[in-house]
Structure formats: structure tokens, C-alpha cells
Simulated assay, not measured.
Amino acid sequence: MKIANAQLWVHDQDEALAFYTRKLGMEVRVDVTIPEMGFRWLTVGPVGQPDVAIVLMAVPGPPVMDAATNEQVRDLMAKGFAGTVFLATDDCRAAFEELTGRGVEFVEEPGERPYGVDSAFRDPSGNHIRLTEVRHPAVA
């Protein structure tokens, strides 16, 4: 087995698509709408890493998710606790400068950690994204 997709809840799939492609430089993998189900399967992924994708999933309403659960998910998203994606880079500070130039707003600037250099930003839906340059991987 291997990981093919990871999912993030998003408020607006078009806004998320623009952020992940235009600001982060990812590519669209799949964008299919099934009108009769009111469902859109939207995935993006890093260029050069075709075997991994992030599903940008709209927070569903009934019957999939009741109103109370929908609100709980949205509250967690607003706090940055509904999902996290970890992005790896060879140079965290250079990637920080590039992404900042594209309009990405960081909540943590690059800083030295025992394992390398680490920073963080959030997507338009509030999802927490870590950008890390690993120099010393954790030892098992």
C-alpha cells in the first residue's frame, strides 16, 4: 500500500484551487464535477510528484454532514486545526521569500529547529501548512 491522496476541507474550492496552483505552484491532478450529486472531486499536487495529491474537499452539508458537525469543522478550520500539510523544501528561507512574493502570508517565519529550518502559513480556508527544510531527520 501507498498513500495516493490526503484531504483538506476548504470553504471555497475555486479559491483553494487558485491558492494551491497560483501561489504554491502546484498542478491540478483531477477536477471533475458530478452535477446530479452536487459534488466536485478536485485534487492538486506538487509538480514532479505525480503519485501524491491533495483533495480540496468542500465541507459538505446534509445528508453527508449535519449542520452541527459542519459548523464544528468550520470552527476547527478557522483555528487552523482541521488539517495540516507538511511541505518539504531544500531551502526553507528561499521558499519563504518566493512564496511571500506571491502573496502567501506566513504565521511563522523560518526558524532553526533541531531537525532543520521550519515555517508555517495558512491557506484561505485556515488549514495549517508547514514548510520545512529537514537537515537532521528524526531517529527511530
Rank of each mutant, 00 (worst) to 15 (best):
E27M: 07
M65C: 15
Q72W: 10
G38E: 13
R135Q: 13
C92L: 01
R40D: 00
P63V: 09
G38D: 14
R122E: 01
A68C: 03
T33P: 10
T21I: 07
P137K: 13
A6M: 09
A58F: 00
A138T: 13
A88V: 02
G80T: 12
E97Y: 00
E15T: 07
V117I: 15
R102P: 01
D90F: 04
P46Q: 03
E109V: 01
R74I: 12
F19V: 04
F19W: 09
S125Y: 11
I54M: 02
T84V: 15
L76R: 15
D123F: 04
G116E: 05
L24W: 06
D91C: 00
R102L: 08
T132L: 15
E105W: 03
Q49R: 09
L42A: 10
D118W: 15
P62V: 14
M77N: 08
V28A: 00
D12M: 03
G126Q: 08
L131C: 10
A58R: 14
D90N: 09
D118F: 15
E112G: 02
P35W: 06
D75F: 02
G126E: 05
G48C: 09
K2T: 14
E105G: 04
G126M: 07
V117W: 04
L17T: 04
G80E: 11
V73W: 06
K23D: 07
A140H: 13
V107L: 01
R40E: 02
G101F: 05
R122C: 12
T21F: 06
L131T: 03
G126K: 01
F96W: 13
Q7K: 08
V44G: 05
M65V: 15
A78V: 02
G38C: 12
W9E: 07
R113D: 02
E133P: 12
P35M: 05
M65W: 10
L87K: 08
R113P: 00
F81Q: 12
V59R: 06
E109K: 10
V44N: 02
E133N: 05
G126F: 10
A67V: 14
P124D: 09
H128P: 05
D66T: 03
L8P: 12
E15S: 06
F106S: 06
G111N: 08
I3K: 03
C92G: 09
M37N: 03
A68H: 05
A94G: 00
H136S: 10
R113I: 08
D14N: 04
A140M: 13
V107G: 00
A138L: 15
T43V: 05
F96T: 06
L99M: 14
Q13Y: 03
F19Q: 11
R29G: 15
E105L: 07
T33G: 12
A88D: 09
N5V: 03
A82N: 14
F96I: 02
A140G: 13
M57F: 08
T43R: 05
G126P: 03
L56K: 14
N127P: 12
V117A: 04
N70H: 15
E105Q: 14
T89M: 04
N70P: 09
T84M: 11
E98S: 09
D12N: 13
M1S: 10
T69R: 12
V59G: 07
Q13L: 06
K79D: 07
M57I: 00
A58W: 00
G45M: 07
I34L: 13
G80F: 08
D14R: 01
